[in-house]
Simulated scan of single mutants.
Amino acid sequence: MAVYIHERHNWTEFQWEDEKILNLLSEVRHLQGKLIGKVELLGFELKDEANLETLIQDVVQSSEIEGESLNPEQVRSSIATRLGLDNSGLVNSDRHIDGVVEMMIDATQNADKTISAERLFSWHGALFPTGRSGLYKIDVAQWRTGDMQVLSGGIGREVVHFEAPKAEKITEEMNEFISWFNTDSAIDPVLKAAIVHLWFVTIHPFDDGNGRIARALTDMQLSKADGVNQRFYSMSAQIKQERKGYYTILEKTQKGDSDITNWIVWFLNCLKESIIASNTIIDKVVRKHHFWMQNNVHISNDRQRLILNKLMDNFEGNLTSSKWAKITKVSADTALRDITDLVNKGVLLRTASGGRSTNYVLNW
Protein backbone atom coordinates (compact mmCIF):
# COMPACT_ATOMS: atom_id res chain seq x y z
CA MET A 1 0.00 0.00 0.00
CA ALA A 2 1.33 3.44 -0.95
CA VAL A 3 2.40 5.62 1.96
CA TYR A 4 3.47 8.76 0.14
CA ILE A 5 1.94 10.46 -2.85
CA HIS A 6 5.02 9.91 -5.03
CA GLU A 7 4.74 6.13 -4.51
CA ARG A 8 1.37 6.06 -6.28
CA HIS A 9 1.02 5.22 -9.97
CA ASN A 10 1.02 8.37 -12.15
CA TRP A 11 1.20 10.48 -9.01
CA THR A 12 1.69 13.76 -10.90
CA GLU A 13 -1.71 13.52 -12.59
CA PHE A 14 -3.00 15.96 -10.00
CA GLN A 15 -6.72 16.54 -9.54
CA TRP A 16 -8.81 19.07 -7.66
CA GLU A 17 -12.44 20.03 -7.10
CA ASP A 18 -13.16 23.18 -9.10
CA GLU A 19 -16.19 24.16 -7.01
CA LYS A 20 -13.97 24.43 -3.92
CA ILE A 21 -11.34 26.67 -5.46
CA LEU A 22 -12.89 28.79 -8.23
CA ASN A 23 -14.33 31.55 -6.04
CA LEU A 24 -11.09 31.83 -4.08
CA LEU A 25 -9.03 31.80 -7.27
CA SER A 26 -11.20 34.58 -8.72
CA GLU A 27 -10.70 36.64 -5.56
CA VAL A 28 -6.92 36.18 -5.73
CA ARG A 29 -6.81 37.12 -9.42
CA HIS A 30 -8.90 40.23 -8.69
CA LEU A 31 -6.52 41.27 -5.89
CA GLN A 32 -3.53 40.71 -8.17
CA GLY A 33 -5.06 42.95 -10.81
CA LYS A 34 -5.83 45.70 -8.29
CA LEU A 35 -2.28 45.54 -6.91
CA ILE A 36 -0.60 45.74 -10.31
CA GLY A 37 -2.90 48.63 -11.24
CA LYS A 38 -1.98 50.42 -8.00
CA VAL A 39 1.78 50.10 -8.50
CA GLU A 40 1.51 51.25 -12.12
CA LEU A 41 0.41 54.63 -10.75
CA LEU A 42 3.55 54.96 -8.61
CA GLY A 43 5.96 55.78 -11.44
CA PHE A 44 9.26 54.10 -12.24
CA GLU A 45 11.23 55.24 -9.19
CA LEU A 46 8.68 54.15 -6.61
CA LYS A 47 7.97 50.89 -8.46
CA ASP A 48 11.69 50.08 -8.27
CA GLU A 49 11.70 50.89 -4.55
CA ALA A 50 8.60 48.74 -3.92
CA ASN A 51 10.22 45.90 -5.86
CA LEU A 52 13.41 46.30 -3.78
CA GLU A 53 11.51 46.21 -0.48
CA THR A 54 9.55 43.14 -1.55
CA LEU A 55 12.66 41.26 -2.67
CA ILE A 56 14.38 42.07 0.64
CA GLN A 57 11.41 40.64 2.51
CA ASP A 58 11.30 37.61 0.22
CA VAL A 59 14.99 36.76 0.65
CA VAL A 60 15.08 37.34 4.42
CA GLN A 61 11.82 35.53 5.20
CA SER A 62 12.52 32.58 2.90
CA SER A 63 15.78 31.98 4.76
CA GLU A 64 14.13 32.42 8.16
CA ILE A 65 11.67 29.64 7.32
CA GLU A 66 14.74 27.38 7.27
CA GLY A 67 15.97 28.81 10.58
CA GLU A 68 18.64 31.03 9.00
CA SER A 69 18.81 34.74 9.84
CA LEU A 70 20.24 37.07 7.20
CA ASN A 71 21.34 40.65 7.78
CA PRO A 72 18.61 42.80 6.11
CA GLU A 73 21.08 45.60 5.40
CA GLN A 74 23.42 43.24 3.57
CA VAL A 75 20.46 41.82 1.66
CA ARG A 76 19.36 45.35 0.69
CA SER A 77 22.85 46.24 -0.49
CA SER A 78 23.19 43.03 -2.54
CA ILE A 79 19.81 43.47 -4.23
CA ALA A 80 20.28 47.19 -4.89
CA THR A 81 23.65 46.53 -6.51
CA ARG A 82 22.27 43.82 -8.79
CA LEU A 83 19.26 45.91 -9.80
CA GLY A 84 21.42 48.96 -10.52
CA LEU A 85 19.71 51.03 -7.80
CA ASP A 86 21.32 53.64 -5.58
CA ASN A 87 22.95 51.82 -2.67
CA SER A 88 25.34 54.48 -1.44
CA GLY A 89 26.23 54.14 2.21
CA LEU A 90 25.02 50.55 2.45
CA VAL A 91 27.08 47.75 3.96
CA ASN A 92 28.94 45.15 1.92
CA SER A 93 27.26 41.76 1.62
CA ASP A 94 28.95 38.37 1.98
CA ARG A 95 28.95 35.78 -0.78
CA HIS A 96 26.35 33.59 0.92
CA ILE A 97 23.80 36.41 0.87
CA ASP A 98 24.82 37.32 -2.68
CA GLY A 99 24.07 33.74 -3.71
CA VAL A 100 20.54 33.78 -2.27
CA VAL A 101 19.92 37.16 -3.91
CA GLU A 102 21.26 36.01 -7.29
CA MET A 103 18.89 33.05 -7.26
CA MET A 104 15.86 35.16 -6.39
CA ILE A 105 16.63 37.84 -8.97
CA ASP A 106 17.29 35.27 -11.69
CA ALA A 107 13.95 33.62 -10.87
CA THR A 108 11.83 36.76 -10.84
CA GLN A 109 13.53 39.52 -12.83
CA ASN A 110 14.84 37.77 -15.92
CA ALA A 111 12.56 37.60 -18.93
CA ASP A 112 13.28 33.92 -19.55
CA LYS A 113 10.88 32.10 -17.25
CA THR A 114 11.94 28.60 -18.21
CA ILE A 115 14.08 26.26 -16.16
CA SER A 116 16.61 23.54 -16.85
CA ALA A 117 18.70 21.21 -14.72
CA GLU A 118 21.68 23.52 -15.26
CA ARG A 119 19.73 26.58 -14.12
CA LEU A 120 18.61 24.79 -10.97
CA PHE A 121 22.17 23.57 -10.39
CA SER A 122 23.43 27.14 -10.64
CA TRP A 123 20.87 28.25 -8.03
CA HIS A 124 21.92 25.45 -5.72
CA GLY A 125 25.58 26.31 -6.16
CA ALA A 126 24.82 29.95 -5.34
CA LEU A 127 23.01 28.91 -2.13
CA PHE A 128 25.97 26.81 -0.94
CA PRO A 129 29.15 28.52 -2.21
CA THR A 130 31.38 26.65 0.26
CA GLY A 131 29.96 23.22 -0.55
CA ARG A 132 28.64 22.93 2.99
CA SER A 133 25.34 23.31 4.79
CA GLY A 134 26.42 24.49 8.21
CA LEU A 135 29.11 22.05 9.35
CA TYR A 136 28.17 19.34 6.88
CA LYS A 137 29.59 18.78 3.41
CA ILE A 138 26.83 18.24 0.85
CA ASP A 139 26.49 17.48 -2.85
CA VAL A 140 26.29 20.88 -4.53
CA ALA A 141 24.97 21.73 -8.00
CA GLN A 142 23.84 18.16 -8.62
CA TRP A 143 20.91 15.95 -7.71
CA ARG A 144 21.23 14.25 -4.35
CA THR A 145 22.80 10.81 -4.33
CA GLY A 146 21.35 9.58 -1.03
CA ASP A 147 17.94 9.02 0.53
CA MET A 148 16.08 11.98 2.02
CA GLN A 149 13.79 12.13 5.05
CA VAL A 150 12.11 15.15 6.61
CA LEU A 151 12.44 14.74 10.38
CA SER A 152 11.64 16.55 13.60
CA GLY A 153 12.48 15.85 17.22
CA GLY A 154 15.74 15.27 19.06
CA ILE A 155 18.17 12.39 18.67
CA GLY A 156 16.44 9.13 19.55
CA ARG A 157 13.01 10.79 19.35
CA GLU A 158 12.91 11.56 15.64
CA VAL A 159 9.55 11.72 13.88
CA VAL A 160 9.58 10.99 10.14
CA HIS A 161 7.20 13.39 8.40
CA PHE A 162 8.12 12.53 4.84
CA GLU A 163 10.39 10.32 2.75
CA ALA A 164 11.31 11.67 -0.68
CA PRO A 165 11.69 9.54 -3.83
CA LYS A 166 14.79 7.35 -3.99
CA ALA A 167 17.92 8.98 -5.42
CA GLU A 168 17.93 6.76 -8.50
CA LYS A 169 14.54 8.19 -9.50
CA ILE A 170 15.51 11.86 -9.22
CA THR A 171 16.71 12.42 -12.79
CA GLU A 172 13.56 10.92 -14.29
CA GLU A 173 11.28 12.78 -11.85
CA MET A 174 13.02 16.11 -12.45
CA ASN A 175 13.01 15.71 -16.24
CA GLU A 176 9.24 15.30 -16.09
CA PHE A 177 8.88 18.29 -13.75
CA ILE A 178 11.08 20.57 -15.88
CA SER A 179 9.26 19.61 -19.08
CA TRP A 180 5.88 20.31 -17.47
CA PHE A 181 7.05 23.61 -15.98
CA ASN A 182 8.29 24.88 -19.35
CA THR A 183 5.19 23.80 -21.29
CA ASP A 184 2.28 26.21 -21.64
CA SER A 185 -0.97 24.65 -20.51
CA ALA A 186 -4.60 25.50 -19.94
CA ILE A 187 -4.05 25.54 -16.17
CA ASP A 188 -4.43 29.00 -14.63
CA PRO A 189 -0.90 30.36 -13.90
CA VAL A 190 -1.72 30.82 -10.21
CA LEU A 191 -2.91 27.22 -9.88
CA LYS A 192 0.25 26.17 -11.68
CA ALA A 193 2.28 28.00 -9.00
CA ALA A 194 0.57 25.93 -6.30
CA ILE A 195 1.40 22.72 -8.18
CA VAL A 196 5.00 23.84 -8.85
CA HIS A 197 5.63 24.29 -5.15
CA LEU A 198 4.11 20.97 -4.11
CA TRP A 199 5.68 18.97 -6.93
CA PHE A 200 9.21 20.26 -6.37
CA VAL A 201 9.30 19.86 -2.58
CA THR A 202 7.85 16.36 -2.95
CA ILE A 203 10.71 15.31 -5.26
CA HIS A 204 13.17 17.03 -2.88
CA PRO A 205 15.98 16.68 -5.46
CA PHE A 206 18.83 18.33 -3.52
CA ASP A 207 20.72 17.53 -0.32
CA ASP A 208 19.61 20.88 1.11
CA GLY A 209 17.99 24.13 -0.02
CA ASN A 210 14.86 22.48 -1.46
CA GLY A 211 12.46 24.81 0.36
CA ARG A 212 14.23 27.99 -0.78
CA ILE A 213 14.43 26.79 -4.37
CA ALA A 214 10.77 25.74 -4.28
CA ARG A 215 9.80 29.23 -3.16
CA ALA A 216 11.98 30.78 -5.88
CA LEU A 217 10.25 28.61 -8.49
CA THR A 218 6.88 29.62 -7.02
CA ASP A 219 7.81 33.29 -7.34
CA MET A 220 8.97 32.67 -10.91
CA GLN A 221 5.60 31.18 -11.79
CA LEU A 222 3.70 33.92 -9.93
CA SER A 223 5.62 36.57 -11.89
CA LYS A 224 4.26 34.89 -15.02
CA ALA A 225 0.78 35.11 -13.54
CA ASP A 226 1.28 38.82 -12.73
CA GLY A 227 2.67 39.55 -16.18
CA VAL A 228 5.54 41.63 -14.71
CA ASN A 229 9.21 41.03 -13.88
CA GLN A 230 8.99 42.80 -10.52
CA ARG A 231 7.66 41.54 -7.19
CA PHE A 232 5.19 43.51 -5.11
CA TYR A 233 4.07 40.84 -2.64
CA SER A 234 6.02 38.20 -0.74
CA MET A 235 4.65 34.67 -0.59
CA SER A 236 7.65 33.66 1.53
CA ALA A 237 6.83 36.26 4.18
CA GLN A 238 3.28 34.91 4.45
CA ILE A 239 4.45 31.28 4.58
CA LYS A 240 6.79 32.32 7.42
CA GLN A 241 3.81 33.68 9.35
CA GLU A 242 1.80 30.52 8.66
CA ARG A 243 4.73 28.11 8.95
CA LYS A 244 2.99 25.61 11.23
CA GLY A 245 -0.04 25.39 8.94
CA TYR A 246 2.25 25.16 5.92
CA TYR A 247 4.08 22.09 7.20
CA THR A 248 0.83 20.50 8.36
CA ILE A 249 -0.97 20.77 5.01
CA LEU A 250 2.19 19.79 3.15
CA GLU A 251 2.57 16.60 5.20
CA LYS A 252 -1.11 15.69 4.80
CA THR A 253 -0.94 16.22 1.04
CA GLN A 254 2.28 14.25 0.63
CA LYS A 255 0.70 11.35 2.53
CA GLY A 256 -2.48 11.51 0.44
CA ASP A 257 -3.45 10.78 -3.14
CA SER A 258 -3.41 12.92 -6.26
CA ASP A 259 -6.45 14.97 -5.17
CA ILE A 260 -4.67 18.13 -3.99
CA THR A 261 -7.75 20.32 -3.46
CA ASN A 262 -6.92 21.08 0.18
CA TRP A 263 -3.35 22.05 -0.69
CA ILE A 264 -4.56 24.43 -3.41
CA VAL A 265 -7.10 26.02 -1.05
CA TRP A 266 -4.38 26.57 1.56
CA PHE A 267 -1.98 27.96 -1.06
CA LEU A 268 -4.58 30.38 -2.47
CA ASN A 269 -5.51 31.65 1.00
CA CYS A 270 -1.83 32.19 1.81
CA LEU A 271 -1.33 34.00 -1.51
CA LYS A 272 -4.41 36.14 -0.88
CA GLU A 273 -3.04 37.27 2.50
CA SER A 274 0.39 38.02 0.99
CA ILE A 275 -1.20 40.29 -1.62
CA ILE A 276 -3.25 42.09 1.03
CA ALA A 277 -0.11 42.53 3.16
CA SER A 278 1.69 44.12 0.19
CA ASN A 279 -0.17 47.35 0.88
CA THR A 280 2.09 47.80 3.92
CA ILE A 281 5.19 47.78 1.69
CA ILE A 282 3.68 50.13 -0.88
CA ASP A 283 2.45 52.56 1.80
CA LYS A 284 5.94 52.53 3.35
CA VAL A 285 7.55 53.31 -0.01
CA VAL A 286 5.15 56.19 -0.69
CA ARG A 287 5.62 57.55 2.84
CA LYS A 288 9.40 57.39 2.48
CA HIS A 289 9.18 59.18 -0.88
CA HIS A 290 7.10 61.98 0.59
CA PHE A 291 9.52 62.31 3.51
CA TRP A 292 12.48 62.84 1.17
CA MET A 293 10.54 65.28 -0.99
CA GLN A 294 9.97 67.41 2.10
CA ASN A 295 13.35 66.98 3.80
CA ASN A 296 15.99 66.34 1.15
CA VAL A 297 16.98 70.01 1.15
CA HIS A 298 17.72 69.84 4.89
CA ILE A 299 20.33 67.07 4.67
CA SER A 300 23.90 68.28 5.23
CA ASN A 301 25.91 65.08 4.75
CA ASP A 302 25.80 61.39 3.83
CA ARG A 303 25.86 60.34 7.49
CA GLN A 304 22.50 61.97 8.04
CA ARG A 305 21.06 60.39 4.92
CA LEU A 306 22.32 56.96 6.02
CA ILE A 307 20.75 57.13 9.49
CA LEU A 308 17.46 58.57 8.25
CA ASN A 309 17.13 55.75 5.73
CA LYS A 310 17.84 53.25 8.50
CA LEU A 311 15.16 54.82 10.68
CA MET A 312 12.64 54.42 7.86
CA ASP A 313 13.54 50.77 7.36
CA ASN A 314 14.23 48.37 10.23
CA PHE A 315 16.19 50.31 12.83
CA GLU A 316 16.76 48.26 15.98
CA GLY A 317 16.07 50.00 19.29
CA ASN A 318 16.16 53.75 19.88
CA LEU A 319 18.39 56.24 18.10
CA THR A 320 20.90 57.81 20.49
CA SER A 321 23.97 59.94 19.84
CA SER A 322 26.25 57.04 20.85
CA LYS A 323 24.50 54.70 18.42
CA TRP A 324 24.79 57.36 15.68
CA ALA A 325 28.53 57.65 16.36
CA LYS A 326 29.00 53.88 16.26
CA ILE A 327 27.09 53.36 13.00
CA THR A 328 28.66 56.27 11.14
CA LYS A 329 32.12 55.77 12.71
CA VAL A 330 32.51 59.35 13.94
CA SER A 331 33.24 60.99 17.29
CA ALA A 332 30.50 61.61 19.86
CA ASP A 333 30.77 65.38 19.24
CA THR A 334 30.32 64.96 15.48
CA ALA A 335 27.35 62.66 16.03
CA LEU A 336 25.70 65.18 18.35
CA ARG A 337 26.27 67.99 15.84
CA ASP A 338 24.65 65.90 13.07
CA ILE A 339 21.66 65.17 15.29
CA THR A 340 21.28 68.72 16.59
CA ASP A 341 21.32 70.01 13.01
CA LEU A 342 18.39 67.73 12.10
CA VAL A 343 16.50 68.56 15.30
CA ASN A 344 16.84 72.30 14.61
CA LYS A 345 15.52 71.77 11.08
CA GLY A 346 12.55 69.74 12.35
CA VAL A 347 13.64 66.50 10.67
CA LEU A 348 14.22 64.69 13.98
CA LEU A 349 12.38 65.07 17.27
CA ARG A 350 13.99 64.71 20.70
CA THR A 351 11.95 62.43 22.98
CA ALA A 352 10.95 63.38 26.50
CA SER A 353 13.64 61.26 28.16
CA GLY A 354 16.81 63.12 29.05
CA GLY A 355 20.44 62.57 30.01
CA ARG A 356 22.15 59.49 28.65
CA SER A 357 18.79 58.00 27.66
CA THR A 358 18.00 60.86 25.28
CA ASN A 359 16.89 59.46 21.97
CA TYR A 360 15.45 60.76 18.74
CA VAL A 361 12.67 59.84 16.34
CA LEU A 362 11.71 60.85 12.83
CA ASN A 363 9.31 63.76 12.47
CA TRP A 364 6.97 62.02 10.00
Rank of each mutant, 00 (worst) to 15 (best):
N182I: 06
D184C: 02
A194M: 07
R144L: 08
F200M: 00
G146Y: 08
E168S: 09
K166C: 00
S179G: 00
L151C: 03
W199P: 00
A186P: 00
L198A: 01
G154D: 14
K137F: 06
G153P: 05
S152D: 13
I203C: 06
A186W: 01
N175D: 15
R144M: 08
V159D: 03
K166Q: 13
E163K: 07
V201D: 05
P165S: 05
G154W: 11
F206R: 10
I203Q: 01
F162D: 01
L151M: 15
E176F: 06
D207R: 05
I203A: 08
I170G: 00
T202E: 09
P165C: 07
E173R: 10
G153Q: 05
G209R: 05
H161C: 04
F181P: 09
E176Y: 00
I178P: 04
V196T: 15
S152K: 12
F206K: 04
N182R: 09
S179T: 13
I138C: 09
T145M: 11
T202A: 13
I138E: 08
A193S: 15
D207F: 04
R157Q: 13
I203F: 10
G156I: 01
D147N: 14
H197R: 11
G146L: 10
I155P: 05
T171S: 09
T202P: 04
D147E: 15
I138R: 07
D184M: 06
M174L: 15
E168I: 13
E173V: 01
E176G: 06
G154Y: 09
F200P: 03
D188F: 11
M174R: 01
K169W: 02
I187C: 07
I170W: 00
H204D: 03
F181R: 02
F162S: 13
A194E: 04
L198T: 03
S152R: 12
F177T: 13
I195Q: 04
D207A: 08
G156E: 04
A186I: 04
